[in-house]
Design a protein around this nucleic acid. Structure first.
Length: 288
DNA sequence: CACTTGACCTGTCCGC
DNA sequence: TGCGGACAGGTCAAGT
């Protein structure tokens, strides 16, 4: 999915577009799991509600409403949240949208605003969801209670980062990085990219890493995620931002999806293996 | 509790 | 061009 940099890019787009808009309607098209909300709640707390702001926690988006309710949204693997103004436009429009007419066959939820604009939730694989709930309950859902700290917070130190991994000492560093309860927002792309940057083999046991290893990994993870946000995220397949545009981080990736190419650091061949249940890219020559 | 594996879905690509 | 299988950026539940 959409990992932290992609979700943050969508958040920034929506934060420019949505505040002040008033919901006119919202409903699922053919996939009840994508929008599992009682019709009565939608009528009472969403229709007529004004958007106050858009937040992100880990890979979760939060659209806050003036009814003290929030739309809680997870894009999972293939989710997209695409905004369209009153005048609809398709591929090739000057704004660079890659998405054509909406809704399309992967549109699961359509949200309309009173000014005639729309927000579409597209999700090919139907893993994602849009849930309406009281804003005060959001911190109490299981995921929010368990999720680890935000890696890009200014006061998140290398020492705190290393400390978080202690309870996962017997597993490998790749699996631990993907564990959202250790640190929030890391997915397969930025796990591989940051491990390459820190020169750490993804198969290493967490317990075997030194303080210096954690310090490098902490720095590389923050650097690569900040660069990815600057580039509008990674579009490997489905990901697009709030206006349907692709991200360009994949042009800058060092190992992810670059198997068979030369390592930009040492020139040896980048390989792809199956590890921690995921496709994993590395340079065996410089990641130890 | 820590850890691993399979399930949830649809679409695409690759080998036969 | 058809078909089976593997795989795809993420969590969960259920197993050991």
């Amino acid at each position: 999915m959409p990992e932290l940099p992609e979700v943050e890019t969508v958040r920034r787009g929506l934060a420019d577009l949505l505040p002040g808009k008033v919901f006119a309607s919202a409903g699922q098209r053919d996939s009840p799991k994508s929008f599992p909300n009682a019709e009565a709640d939608v009528r009472q707390f969403l229709v007529g509600a004004t958007v106050r702001g858009v937040r992100r926690r880990a890979k979760v988006l939060l659209i806050d409403l003036d009814t003290d309710h929030s739309l809680v949204i997870h894009l999972k693997m293939t989710g997209q949240l695409v905004f369209r103004g009153q005048r609809s436009f398709g591929a090739g429009h000057p704004n660079g949208s890659l998405i054509g007419e909406l809704p399309d066959r992967s549109t699961r939820v359509v949200m309309a605003f009173t000014d005639g604009s729309h927000l579409y939730f597209n999700d090919q694989r139907k893993f994602g969801w849009v849930k309406l709930m009281p804003s005060l309950e959001v911190p109490n859902i299981d995921f929010m209670r368990k999720v680890g700290p935000e890696p890009l917070e200014a006061d998140f130190t290398a020492a705190q980062f290393a400390e978080r991994f202690k309870r996962r000492g017997k597993t490998n560093i790749k699996a631990a990085l993907l564990d959202q309860t250790v640190v929030a927002g890391v997915g397969n792309i930025y796990a591989d990219e940051s491990l390459w940057g820190a020169k750490i083999d993804p198969r290493r046991l967490v317990g075997s890493l030194s303080d210096a290893d954690f310090t490098r990994l902490h720095q590389e993870l923050r650097d690569v995620m900040n660069l990815a946000i600057e580039k509008g995220g990674s579009t490997d397949r489905n990901y697009v931002d709030a206006e349907g545009r692709r991200g360009s981080y994949m042009d800058f990736a060092r190992v992810f999806r670059r198997e068979g190419q030369k390592c930009p650091r040492c020139g040896e061949e980048i390989i792809k293996i199956r590890w921690a249940g995921r496709g994993t890219h590395l340079c065996e020559n410089c990641q130890k």
